[in-house]
Simulated assay, not measured.
Amino acid sequence: MHVVELRFECFDNTTISAAEKAINGLLEAYRANGQVLGREFAVAFNEGEFRARLLMPEKSSLSKRFNSPWVELALSELTEAKLLAPREKYIGQDINSEVSSTETPSWQLLYTSYVHMCSPVRNGDTLQPIPLYQLPATFNGDHKRIIRWQTEWQACDELQMAAATKAEFAALEELTSPKSDLFRRGWDLRGRIEYLTKIPTYYYLYRVGGDNLASEKARPCPRCGNKEWLLEEPLLDMFHFRCDACRIVSNISWDHL
């Protein structure tokens, strides 16, 4: 991933509130399209211009060819706030984040965790994140629904990892059950992505608990009951199960590995 600084210069008198609304609107549009990553963006006013430092999947993430209709609208609204189009200053590659996938995968999956800021759509051959703007728009011109699903999944993951309140059990149900709302929304998004890209797309179903390793290996696919979904060797050293009919991958319970 890469770090860039956007600089917004005023071409006429404006107000902090007008500039704030226009800049934040643009950053949110970029985020909904997967062009910038993260949830919060610091915007500073310094030496007569506004500056925002952002994390992007690729060096070229803010190229016009990737813009969604919402991004184009937000860019036009900068003029109303008396701001010029942003100037881009490339800072460098982020050493603490993953490298985005640049190859067309043979299969892909929907996978995230509370520590990941990158795209939740992963290359199934390498597990590298695929920038969302590289995919056809999933709904209403961008990828807002995927970002929303990712935020919800990460919130549940953080609750269950903290293991400090009763909310842990509700969060685990959302992460591990094929009957949960989180699974239903994510699995539907998976299907939408597969339809648009024509690439087999799977959903990662998180797994903890279970009695022992033997019973874990014998458990069937929780969606269709397929008993033949255990793999001889784990995919990407992480996924021990794959059901091609249900488009689900899962792991042997982390409690028994």
Score class of each variant (00 low, 15 high):
137 A>V: 04
137 A>Y: 07
138 T>P: 02
138 T>S: 11
138 T>K: 03
138 T>I: 15
138 T>F: 06
139 F>H: 14
139 F>W: 08
139 F>Q: 13
140 N>V: 14
141 G>P: 14
143 H>F: 00
143 H>P: 03
143 H>I: 01
145 R>Y: 09
147 I>D: 02
149 W>E: 00
150 Q>H: 08
152 E>H: 07
153 W>A: 09
153 W>E: 09
153 W>G: 00
153 W>I: 00
153 W>K: 04
154 Q>A: 15
154 Q>P: 06
154 Q>Y: 07
155 A>Q: 14
156 C>R: 04
156 C>T: 05
156 C>P: 02
157 D>V: 04
157 D>G: 15
161 M>R: 10
162 A>V: 05
163 A>L: 10
164 A>E: 14
164 A>K: 11
165 T>I: 06
166 K>A: 09
167 A>R: 15
167 A>G: 15
167 A>M: 15
168 E>I: 07
170 A>W: 01
170 A>N: 08
171 A>V: 06
172 L>S: 05
172 L>T: 05
173 E>L: 08
174 E>T: 02
174 E>N: 11
175 L>M: 10
175 L>E: 06
176 T>S: 12
176 T>Q: 11
181 D>F: 03
181 D>Y: 10
181 D>Q: 11
183 F>Q: 07
184 R>S: 14
184 R>C: 05
187 W>N: 12
189 L>P: 11
189 L>H: 10
189 L>E: 14
191 G>Q: 10
192 R>W: 10
193 I>S: 01
195 Y>G: 07
195 Y>E: 15
195 Y>W: 10
196 L>I: 00
197 T>R: 03
198 K>I: 00
198 K>C: 07
199 I>S: 01
199 I>F: 02
201 T>P: 03
201 T>S: 15
206 Y>W: 14
209 G>A: 03
211 D>V: 12
212 N>P: 08
215 S>P: 04
216 E>S: 08
216 E>L: 08
218 A>F: 08
